[in-house]
Design a protein around this nucleic acid. Structure first.
Length: 271
DNA sequence: ACATTGACCTGGGAGC
DNA sequence: TGCTCCCAGGTCAATG
């Protein structure tokens, strides 16, 4: 269930557990993810020590002396830190095994995720180089957002979900942020005032950082066999609340489809 | 450069 | 029970 907060939580969770640990082996049971897992990955990483763990957009970056492992969780991926002999489940595609008997296990039923190796500077990587700023950093601000928005005809929801504009705003948090900012999801991006972009920018930062806080409490135990699906559901103000009353004004929440993705909004609170 | 659409996968739930 | 259909938290590649 990975949006940015889930990825961030995963990174914070596994960092102290795998940093400085030496890989003894990598077991790949299924190579066919979004792109094939490199067949020589076990050979590449055997005996190597984890130098650092970080995140860029929704990519988990595990750095070694001579390169970086890029992991993306796609729609249904997860990483768990467990004993290497922990019972295998369906869709447990990859084990990264450490010399302390522990294991980072990648599970991904839909196989939209990715595990790739690069020896280049990560920021130059094909999947990373075109990405926009991180939403929680200072270069994502109203001036930037307003400048990029001019002459754009797409709806504001599509715009904030465009990773070239800003990374990490997935379908849930797009709806949530637009509600908080009081902006209708179909509104044409190029016609929105700077004042409203200020609200939107603040909302995106607020919604994501709040969700990260929540994720940190519910997913903190990475040795558990299972994550907790829907943990954020109680916090949602509009997402997946079609036909339910708006938490602010009681108006019925509406559901529409934009570019084949669900959008939820309150037609009274959002204009 | 921008906008739109299809593609990649499996699983779960609704409806019959 | 079982079938079909639809939906799902992502994002790249191809096309106009």
């Amino acid at each position: 269930m990975p949006e940015l907060p889930e990825v961030e939580t995963t990174v914070t969770g596994i960092t102290p557990l795998i940093s400085g640990q030496k890989i003894t082996n990598i077991v790949i049971r299924e190579h066919r993810l979004r792109w094939p897992i490199p067949a020589d990955l076990p050979k590449t990483l055997q005996g190597q020590t984890v130098a650092s763990v970080s995140r860029r957009a929704k990519y988990i970056l595990i750095k070694f002396q001579h390169g970086t492992l890029l992991i993306h969780l796609g729609m249904s991926g997860s990483l768990r830190f467990i004993d290497k002999d922990f019972e295998l489940a369906k869709h447990d595609h990859v084990d990264i095994i450490f010399n302390n008997g522990k294991c980072l296990r990648f599970r991904d039923p839909r196989r939209f995720g990715a595990i790739l190796w690069t020896t280049d500077e990560v920021s130059q990587h094909k999947l990373i180089s075109h990405l926009g700023p991180e939403p929680l950093q200072d270069d994502f601000n109203v001036d930037y957002l307003f400048r990029r928005s001019r002459k754009r005809t797409v709806s504001i929801k599509q715009f904030i979900m465009d990773s070239k504009i800003v990374v990490g705003v997935g379908n849930i948090y797009a709806s949530e942020s637009l509600f908080m900012a009081g902006i209708h999801p179909t509104r044409a991006t190029g016609l929105i005032s700077k004042a409203r972009f200020q609200k939107l920018c603040n909302a995106i930062k607020k919604v994501l950082s709040l969700a990260i806080t929540q994720g940190g409490t519910t997913l903190k135990d990475f040795s558990n066999s299972d994550g907790k699906p829907g943990y954020f559901k109680q916090q949602l103000t509009v997402y997946d609340r079609a036909d339910l009353p708006c938490k602010k004004c009681s108006q019925t929440i509406k559901h529409i489809t934009q570019n084949n993705r669900s959008s939820y909004f309150c037609s009274r609170c959002q204009r």
